[in-house]
Design a protein around this nucleic acid. Structure first.
Lengths: 105, 105
DNA sequence: TTACTTGTTCGCAAATATACGAACTGTTCG
DNA sequence: CGAACAGTTCGTATATTTGCGAACAAGTAA
């Protein structure tokens, strides 16, 4: 039997999933999306974690491509990266919806 | 400013995301869904990892609720858990689609 | 019974993730 | 200039994840 390699799709889904794999990051994305954009301080104010930790989670989200940050001295404004957000949405959408015949006999 | 607690939705999305956060598990789910169900051996045959590791990933997926295993001596048959799969699909669907007004000014 | 087949569990090592305070950078304000 | 403000980065501690071989458990076949 032939071993398979993980496809780039597998990797991409896994990477976006990893970005969503912590409640703080889910909350950040939700908060960001609801208000379009917001500053680091707004996020730190509502999240139950230290600012260093908030910064770290934002860093993970930035690396995943789901958000972007813009320096507006003396603050930093974060917002959803719409392009990658759409890519992630489509990846998950296809992944969850295009699997037919799911019935265990 | 009021701190928020992570909601159970945040936690649930994070948990499902964590289940998808490894290429092997994405591949397993895809493989499972394409063939409805299959045995441990089929998965081990196609995945580039040791059987102990396959078992571990299956365990993670089982705990997430996305799949279920049934012992059919001497084999174990795994398949998608449709109920939870639908829940996850809806969670991600709402999460990615119900965020309007995503534009960074 | 013994041997084999199928898959899980154990024990360990290495890598990654999470969290925080303290120190730091860069900007603004007095 | 020095103080205050907004965030990031550093260093560290702890927990979780990933991966594997070896040992194990359960069922089947001889």
């Amino acid at each position: 039997m032939e071993k398979i390699d993980y496809t780039s799709r597998h990797h991409q889904i896994a990477l976006y999933a990893k970005a969503l794999a912590h409640p703080a990051r889910v909350a950040i994305l939700e908060f960001l999306a609801a208000r379009e954009c917001c500053f680091f301080g707004n996020l730190h104010d509502v999240l139950p974690i230290a600012k260093a930790t908030v910064s770290q989670h934002l860093s993970v989200l930035k690396e995943s491509g789901l958000i972007q940050g813009e320096i507006k001295p003396p603050q930093v404004r974060y917002c959803i990266n719409k392009e990658n957000w759409d890519i992630a949405r489509d990846l998950f959408g296809l992944f969850f919806n295009d699997l037919k015949k799911i019935e265990c006999s």
